[in-house]
């Protein structure tokens, strides 16, 4: 059986993917809406509405049903600058989190490739990634809730309460953040062990 190695091509592919994330994510999540705003396009917002409604359609066969899950796309042709900025806030969190995750991971891949996995730098990087994954999704959801209420208020002309849908994936990402914190602790112990071994006579 062939040995399963993480060879230089795997390193190269990992670095390329992380680099794409580092540069691409901020560009897509903030750059595209900014370009739309600058170009005078309408503000399109994937809104979450609290009301639930049963979907009835003659196309549905007997025994089948479809339910509206509260998602709706709101388009505002004349959105104010404040509203544009509010809708950009969740994207800014993602844009800020992307380099905080991909940047340290890039550094980590380099240190692993150099054979210096158990180092203080690796521990710091893992902690930054873990903390970002733990907190950023919640900040994103909080700001999405605020922006959602503002968009709905503008669209419907009535007051909307802050409401937010937290997908199960958020908990998974936060759990991953905590797990990375534990991995960072293992790396810290490994770094200390390495330090001891280097001074062992």
């Amino acid at each position: 059986m062939a040995r399963l190695d993480f060879d230089r091509w795997d390193y190269a592919a990992t670095k390329l993917l992380l680099l794409v994330g580092l540069l691409g994510v901020p560009l897509v999540v903030v750059g595209l809406p900014l370009a739309a705003w600058a170009g005078g396009d309408a503000l399109v917002w994937p809104a979450v509405l609290e009301e639930q409604a049963r979907v009835t359609s003659p196309a549905l066969r007997d025994g089948a049903s479809a339910a509206w899950d509260g998602g709706a796309e709101v388009t505002l042709a004349d959105a104010s600058g404040t509203l544009w900025l509010l809708t950009l806030l969740p994207a800014l969190v993602v844009a800020a989190a992307a380099p905080l995750v991909t940047g340290p991971l890039l550094g980590l891949v380099r240190t692993i490739q150099r054979g210096e996995s158990f180092s203080d730098a690796a521990v710091r990087r893992l902690r930054v990634v873990g903390l970002t994954l733990l907190l950023a999704p919640w900040a994103h959801h909080a700001l999405t809730g605020i922006a959602n209420a503002a968009v709905l208020e503008e669209a419907f002309g009535q007051e909307f309460w802050f409401s937010v849908v937290i997908p199960a994936g958020t908990l998974a990402i936060s759990a991953l953040g905590l797990a990375l914190g534990a991995v960072a602790e293992a790396f810290r112990q490994g770094a200390r062990l390495r330090d001891d071994v280097e001074g062992l006579v």
């Binding site: 330090d195 001891d196 280097e198 001074g199 062992l200 006579v201």
Partner: peptide, 15 residues
């Protein structure tokens, strides 16, 4: 090298 490490106070552990 190891004896020098010990002599120059750079050792952290001794077997």
């Amino acid at each position: 090298v190891n004896i020098s490490v010990l002599k120059n106070q750079r050792a952290k552990a001794v077997r």
